[in-house]
Design a protein around this nucleic acid. Structure first.
Lengths: 211, 211
DNA sequence: TAGATTGTTAATCGATTAACAATC
DNA sequence: TAGATTGTTAATCGATTAACAATC
C-alpha cells in the first residue's frame, strides 16, 4: 500500500496520532497543525507521515477525525484482534497479563508459558499457563503470530527460537539481552537498562551531585 | 567531556556495549570488530561511538576490556548509585519494584508513591509507600533526581509536574500518554501501544491471515 | 619491520524541515 | 472568489558507512 519505504519513526508516530484522536468526535475536521500540537510534532511532519499512505485530507480544511481513525487503524493493522503468546510468568509477565489496555486495543494474550512446574497448569486472569516445551505445538494450533518475552536474560534466546519455530513473525522482548532472529521476523526490544542509563548519562552531563 | 554533540543512538549503544562486555575478563583486548559482533553492529560504528569520548583503543590491538568497562561506566554515569522515586504501585509498579536488576546496576528505588489510601504507609520490598501529595517534599529531602512514572494515563502529567517540582531532572514514563516537561528535564517513554502497533503494522505488511 | 587495528575524514544515506503550487 | 490547508518537492540536517593515514 505505501508508495515508498516508510520510516519506522513514521509508524511509531501513527500510533501516537491514533491514540491522541481516539477521544475526539468523528465529525470534527482537524488541520495538521492541530494534530501536531496534540502530540508535540510539526504540521509538516504530520502531513508527510500520512501522505505515505494516501490522500486523507481536504485542502483548506484538514483531516476528518473519523477518516483518520479508520485509515490509521487499517494501516497499523489494529482493525482486528491479534492473538499473543506471553512467555515468562514472573513479576513482569504477571503485570503484562493483568494490564487491561492490551485487550482494549485489540491485543489478546491467549496463552502463557513458563518453565516453573509449580505454575504450569494453573489459570491466571483466565489464561492457562503452559509448559515452555509446548510453545511450537500450541502456537501452531492457535495460529499465533505475535510473542512477548518476559523471561530472565539467559532464557530469552531459546524462547525466541521456540516462538519462531511455532510460526511467530513478530516478537516484543523485555529480557535484558540482545536476541538474534531471522530477517523475516520483526523484533522490538524494551530495554530498561538502556532507558535508565540514557537518563543517567543525561544527568551526568549536567554535573548533578545529589543522588 | 565529549568534543561534539553525541547522538542519542550512540549513548544507547554504549549501554549495550557495557552490558555485553561485563562477562569478559578485564585483561582481554577486544578489537572493534569483535565487540561489534557481540552486539550486532559494525566495527566502524563501535569506533565512532567510542571516539566521541576519547581515545581508549590501542592501534593494532583493540580495546582493553577493563578500560572499556571503566570508561563507559563513567561516561554513562553508572559508576555511582542513583536514587529513584517510583510513582504508581499497580501491577507494573510492583513488578518494577521487585526487579532485582535495577539495584544490581546501581539504580535504587528509594521511595514509592501512590494515591491509594489502602497502600500508603505500607512497606513493600523494604520500601515505604508514601502519599503522592508528598512527592515534592520527600524528593527534596532525599535529593532524588530520577523518577519513574507507572501510573494510569490520566494521572501521569500531574505526577510528572510534582516530580519536577521536587527537583527531578530525568523521568522514565510508562504511562500510555505523551507528557510535557521543560527542556531542562530529560524524558524517555516506554510505550507498549507503540511497540505492539509497530509489530502489528509489520505483520499486516506481510499479508498474514492467522490471528 | 610487517601486520593489524585505531581514530578520523569524506561519502553516502535517510529523515526532517521549509516552502509552495494545487485544491477545496 | 478569497482564505486556508493539503500533498509534494527541494533544502537541510544528522547519522551511518566507507576508506585510509596514523600508530602501536
Amino acid at each position: 500500500m505505501p508508495r515508498f519505504k516508510v520510516p519506522e519513526a513514521t509508524v511509531e508516530r501513527l500510533s501516537v496520532y491514533l491514540r491522541s484522536i481516539k477521544r475526539l468526535k468523528d465529525e470534527r475536521v482537524l488541520p495538521s497543525q492541530e494534530l501536531a500540537d496534540l502530540v508535540g510534532t510539526s504540521d509538516g511532519q504530520v502531513r508527510k507521515d500520512l501522505a505515505y499512505f494516501g490522500e486523507f485530507g481536504v485542502p483548506g480544511q484538514g483531516y476528518r477525525v473519523g477518516t483518520l481513525k479508520e485509515e490509521i487503524s487499517r494501516i497499523l493493522g489494529v482493525d482486528r484482534v491479534w492473538s499473543i503468546a506471553l512467555v515468562g510468568m514472573g513479576n513482569l509477565g504477571a503485570a503484562l497479563l493483568a494490564y487491561p489496555g492490551f485487550k482494549r486495543q485489540g491485543f489478546e494474550i491467549k496463552v502463557v508459558f513458563d518453565n516453573d512446574l509449580s505454575k504450569i497448569g494453573k489459570v491466571w486472569q483466565g489464561v492457562k499457563i503452559e509448559d515452555v516445551e509446548k510453545i511450537p505445538q500450541i502456537l501452531f494450533e492457535q495460529e499465533i503470530k505475535m510473542g512477548i518475552i518476559a523471561t530472565p536474560a539467559q532464557a530469552a534466546q531459546a524462547v525466541a527460537s521456540k516462538l519462531i519455530e511455532g510460526g511467530v513473525k513478530a516478537i516484543l522482548n523485555f529480557a535484558p539481552v540482545r536476541i538474534v532472529v531471522p530477517d523475516r521476523v520483526k523484533l522490538r526490544n524494551v530495554d530498561l537498562s538502556i532507558e535508565l542509563e540514557t537518563l543517567s548519562y543525561f544527568l551526568g552531563r549536567k554535573g548533578i551531585a545529589g543522588g
